[in-house]
């Protein structure tokens, strides 16, 4: 009986850790993505057109994803990390070089989004979506122009400001506000930014990440720091909301597609990347996710709906003021952590 029970436990555990891909067809591609970050009918179309079966797997955080890719080599063929993670994965040799000859549709990728800092030679990644960080504000509650981060320090809006509960983003915009780089490794600058945030804390209503969208729709605050994608979601539900990227500059981010060095179906992954870069497919995804698309041909297909929307299609001068995040090595990340803890624990 004891053995039987032990065996049963073991079996249940095994069933839990077995990847779904074990029941695979001949030609497969194992995709590891954020949840709800793809119009899944696109995969069905890909299967119909190529006969390659798509196994879908999802992750919640970049850190989760990095650990999984490390501990299960060969399990994933196509992964969607954030840009600064790509930088780290490249430096740790976790990524395979993509054979660009297999991606003819790469020509559609906006030249300004190529060769970004995280992958300067564009050898390991192809952009999937991109966006900015900015201020979402309620036009009925804010009468000053929202063109500077300084409005987040304006006492007039005390208890009506949502900040991002996120180390890099929040310290980053404060550094930008003070005129420094978002990737600063200058202790004096970081200390100044942390003190600035501590000074701001009494007028902050709350530090949120996911909750901000709905609370802004409900009119719970006048100003909030958000990702452009979240801004669009809220603006669609509440007409009084508007989005602005401050003049001091902000963060621009790209979510690229990469192939792990251990991938077993590299060519299939490349076929899928190429498929996702096809104008009609990129359009489908963009209209589903509603983030900014790096695909010039798809943007042309979408026409004014896309180009006339400054949130999703910011003018070049806004993009020029923005900065990519760089990976910060562990040692120095603890400096960021310690300054952030200080902000969060300030009374």
């Amino acid at each position: 009986m004891k053995k039987l029970l032990a065996l049963l436990t073991l079996l249940t555990l095994l069933a839990a850790v077995m990847p779904l891909g074990a029941l695979a067809a001949d030609e497969v591609v194992n995709v590891y993505n954020w949840y709800d970050y793809m119009d899944e009918s696109v995969f069905e179309q890909f299967e119909e057109e190529t006969g390659i079966h798509v196994n879908k797997m999802y992750f919640t955080t970049n850190e989760d994803m990095m650990v999984q890719v490390r501990v299960s080599p060969g399990a994933y063929d196509l992964v969607f990390p954030s840009d600064y993670c790509v930088e780290r994965m490249i430096s740790e040799g976790m990524l395979a070089e993509i054979n660009m000859d297999n991606i003819p549709n790469f020509v559609n990728v906006e030249p300004s989004l190529r060769n970004a800092d995280y992958d300067p030679e564009q050898k390991y990644s192809v952009p999937f979506m991109w966006g900015t960080v900015g201020i979402l504000y309620n036009t009925t509650m804010v009468d000053d122009p929202v063109d500077s981060w300084s409005i987040l320090w304006n006492e007039k809006y005390a208890d009506s400001i949502f900040m991002l509960d996120s180390i890099r983003d929040t310290l980053g915009i404060t550094l930008k506000y003070l005129g420094y780089s978002m990737n600063s490794r200058d202790l004096l600058q970081l200390n100044e930014a942390a003190n600035k945030l501590i000074e701001q804390k009494p007028i902050v209503k709350a530090y949120y990440v996911d909750e901000t969208k709905d609370k802004m729709v409900a009119g719970e605050a006048a100003l909030a720091v958000v990702y452009s994608g979240d801004a669009l979601y809220s603006m669609e539900l509440n007409e009084d909301l508007a989005y602005s990227v401050p003049k001091e500059g902000s963060n621009i981010w790209i979510d690229p597609m990469v192939i792990p060095a251990t991938a077993k179906n590299k060519e299939n992954a490349e076929k899928l990347i190429d498929f996702l870069c096809r104008p009609d497919i990129a359009q489908k995804n963009c209209e589903y996710i509603w983030y900014s698309s790096p695909n010039a041909a798809a943007i042309e297909l979408m026409g004014e709906d896309y180009t006339e929307n400054p949130t999703i299609n910011p003018p070049q001068d806004v993009i020029d003021r923005c900065e990519f995040f760089h990976d910060i090595p562990d040692d120095f990340l603890s400096v960021y952590n310690s300054f952030w803890t200080k902000v969060k624990n300030a009374k």
Binding site: L13, V17, Y35, T60, D64, I289
Partner: peptide, 21 residues
């Protein structure tokens, strides 16, 4: 960068583990 995410495998494992328990 999306905000709706499914729990990772760890949670599934925990749920199955709990059921087994």
């Amino acid at each position: 960068m999306t905000s709706f995410q499914v729990p990772g495998w760890g949670y599934v494992l925990m749920a199955v583990g709990f059921a087994a328990f």
